[in-house]
């Protein structure tokens, strides 16, 4: 199962809009939307209690909850959380820096376009998760291959969107601002980069989705710490409750980062909303 952050639910954040003072009446989440998810959880619980679902296939929601509380209490879950988030954080930072930088270079300069774009477009077609064996040979089995995998996954969507955003800048705006006396750097900061921002944020969202996915895959292969390790370790002992706890945390992390991007989007693209 993956943390599908790309088509995330649009409603989850309606209760945490940034300026609450401007909205006197907060929109309440529609309770009717909770009926079927709760029913599914209830059915799941019943299936487990009646023995329809044996615990070595899937634990009951109640057991999962207890396992979660227990793992949190011992600090295991917290440690795993920190390790995994750090991997994604570092990998994302590296990949985003590379993707955005290359996108800007290829988008802005003619030679950058000639030199950077072709190899990136070729590499992009590689199924990057298939590079894991190579990464293990190159980087060993420590943190590096996992971080590298995340960085690689992050770099492409950002590169492609930044590049497209810059290339698609409205030539009429360039013409007008040139005629009005904007300097090169003013054109860059007031015309080119802002016009690339919507695309860049799309890229950011995609790349965060990919980041979690890469992490999960990377942690499955070999890990001695982190959420992936927690899950793999639990498999050895048939602890399906712990596995589900791990999955839930993955999902929550994916949703959380997606919510952050949407918050950034709402602020940065205010001019579009009107």
């Amino acid at each position: 199962m993956s943390v599908s952050t790309l088509g995330a639910p649009a409603r989850a954040d309606s209760a945490q809009q940034p300026p609450p003072e401007r909205k006197p009446r907060r929109k309440l989440p529609d309770l009717r939307r909770w009926i079927s998810p709760l029913a599914i959880v209830a059915l799941w619980q019943i299936a487990c209690e009646t023995g329809l679902l044996p615990p070595d296939k899937l634990s009951s929601p109640w057991t999962v909850l207890q396992a979660g509380i227990e793992l949190a209490g011992t600090g295991e879950l917290g440690d795993a959380f920190v390790v995994s988030t750090t991997r994604v954080g570092i990998g994302f930072a590296i990949g985003a820096a590379i993707g955005v930088l290359l996108g800007i270079v290829a988008g802005l300069s003619r030679w950058g376009n000639y030199l950077v774009d072709p190899p990136v477009q070729m590499l992009r077609t590689l199924p990057f998760l298939g590079l894991i064996p190579l990464f293990i040979l190159w980087f060993g089995i420590g943190e590096e291959p996992k971080i590298a995998l995340v960085a690689l996954g992050v770099a492409f969507p950002l590169y492609l969107n930044v590049y497209a955003g810059i290339r698609n800048v409205d030539s009429h705006l360039i013409e007008a601002t040139t005629a009005l006396g904007y300097t090169r750097s003013e054109r860059l900061f007031h015309v080119v980069l802002p016009s690339a921002l919507p695309n860049t944020l799309v890229g950011l969202r995609q790349s965060l989705g990919v980041a979690w996915l890469s992490l999960i895959v990377g942690e499955q292969v070999n890990a001695s710490s982190g959420l992936g390790y927690l899950i793999n370790n639990a498999r050895e002992f048939l602890r399906t409750d712990v596995i589900v706890v791990g999955l839930v945390v993955y999902a929550a992390l994916g949703l959380a980062t997606d919510a952050i991007v949407r918050l950034v989007e709402r602020r940065a693209l205010r001019w579009r909303a009107a």
Binding site: H172, A179, L180, H190
Partner: peptide, 15 residues
């Protein structure tokens, strides 16, 4: 100094 106005206003939508 020269300045221009076009048929379309060509304002920067993000400013």
């Amino acid at each position: 100094k020269v300045s221009v106005a076009f048929q379309q206003p060509r304002l920067l939508p993000w400013r």
